[in-house]
Amino acid sequence: MSVNTIADVEFGVELPSISPDTSLANVKRFVVAAGWDSPRFTDHDAAREQGLPGALVPGIMSQGFLSAMIHHWAPAAEVKLVDTVFRAPCIVDEQYNINGVVTDVDEDTGEVEIDLTVTNEAGENRVFGTAKVLIPLG
């Protein structure tokens, strides 16, 4: 269900999860746009030569996935904070899920807090954090 006003938000509800595009081509598009273009993000072999398990999805791209997931759930949401901890790397071309759970709702101000995670196929958290968003009062 798409959320349009604060009355649509339920405490404890899980936001619809999304599976982001972590392909090499999409990560390349992102890092060029961000000014972060580096082989560690766009070349598996070069990343392995640096001791990494493969090309990395930048942590700031994971933040972008989390914000997009919030907007898919509530298109009019105004993101006021995304606070993330990068617990373990996300690897390009691997599959991840972007997840969120509503942990607080202020019906007077429209502020909603959301716990966020990025999980891999094994269900392990790679990134976690919180978001604060404003949802229209109606």
Partner: peptide, 13 residues
């Protein structure tokens, strides 16, 4: 560049 950043992250608005 801003549009590419947003699209790569999955924003659709």
């Amino acid at each position: 560049a801003l549009a590419d950043y947003a699209i790569a992250c999955g924003e659709t608005a």
